[in-house]
């Protein structure tokens, strides 16, 4: 067998160099991470703090469930609004759909939206519409549009265009070719992104209440600020964990079924 002698640097492709740079930068950053400088019993502190979480206080279950319901409602409404807005905006951000003069301003707008974290959107919304669940819906809608519109446009750009071209060659107009050629191929992936966004928004909606934007976050804030309520805090966390796990499980099942159907492995 011929043994090939490749130069030593040939193994450093872009991926390898990026990984090395990441490793060097991470290790280089370690000395700048400092603690308080005091001699604290970290493990002792942790165990004493965590002990206050148990047992969870089940007496507040009703109140917690109603807060959780509001959280899920905020997530549902904001995800729906974000899907509609993202679909329209993503057309302007897709290279194979929009002309360059629409493409670049739209992409810049999406970059700008993504720069602002969900908690900051929530603060802005609370300032404008007051401390209520509408602020939560506005905040999460805007935050989600930044991501969903990007995911949608990337899906449109990476989807197989052959059926769209085939329909055009048979006389279909551009809107028809998109609706019956490109959209059916992109739709399963788009739905998959929407499900992920819904899961994400339930998580986010749980925390934006911390700044007054409705939902279970307000409960978390109240219990965290009163020193002897960590067992109530833990019940809220437990409820969030259950709902997020259920959503995650359902989302994965649905995504798998979509994948199988697209791969043609099921009837």
């Amino acid at each position: 067998m011929n043994k090939q002698h490749l130069p030593w640097h040939s193994r450093f492709d872009l991926l390898g160099i990026t990984f090395l740079l990441f490793l060097a930068a991470s290790i280089g950053a370690i000395p700048s991470i400092e603690g308080s400088g005091r001699d604290l019993d970290y493990l002792g502190n942790l165990s004493r703090f965590v002990a206050q979480f148990f047992p969870p206080d089940w007496s507040i279950l009703d109140r917690t469930l109603s807060g959780l319901l509001e959280t899920v409602q905020i997530a549902l409404v904001s995800t729906l609004l974000a899907i509609v807005l993202s679909f329209l905006i993503s057309l302007g951000a897709s290279q194979n759909v929009a002309p360059p003069w629409v493409l670049w301003p739209t992409r810049m707008l999406l970059n700008l939206i993504r720069t602002i974290p969900s908690l900051l959107w929530a603060l802005l919304a609370v300032v404008i519409v007051g401390s209520n669940s509408l602020a939560g819906v506005i905040a999460l809608t805007l935050y989600s549009v930044g991501y969903l519109a990007k995911f949608f446009s990337e899906t449109f750009e990476s989807t197989d265009l052959s059926s769209q071209k085939a329909l055009t060659s048979m006389g279909a107009g551009p809107i028809q070719a998109f609706q019956y050629g490109l959209w059916p191929n992109a739709r399963p992936i788009i739905w998959s992104h929407c499900l992920w966004m819904l899961e994400y928004n339930v998580r986010s909606a749980s925390i934006i209440g911390y700044v007054g934007a409705g939902g279970i976050g307000l409960h978390l804030k109240l219990y965290a600020e009163s020193a002897d309520s960590w067992n109530k805090f833990s019940l809220v966390l437990l409820c969030i964990l259950v709902i997020v796990t259920l959503l995650d499980f359902a989302g994965e099942k649905i995504r798998k079924s979509i994948r199988d159907k697209l791969d043609g492995t099921v009837d």
Binding site: Y180, P184, A186
Partner: peptide
Amino acid sequence: MIFQDLQLANGA
């Protein structure tokens, strides 16, 4: 044209 690679919309 009937294309050799069919060019169908798989999700439709």
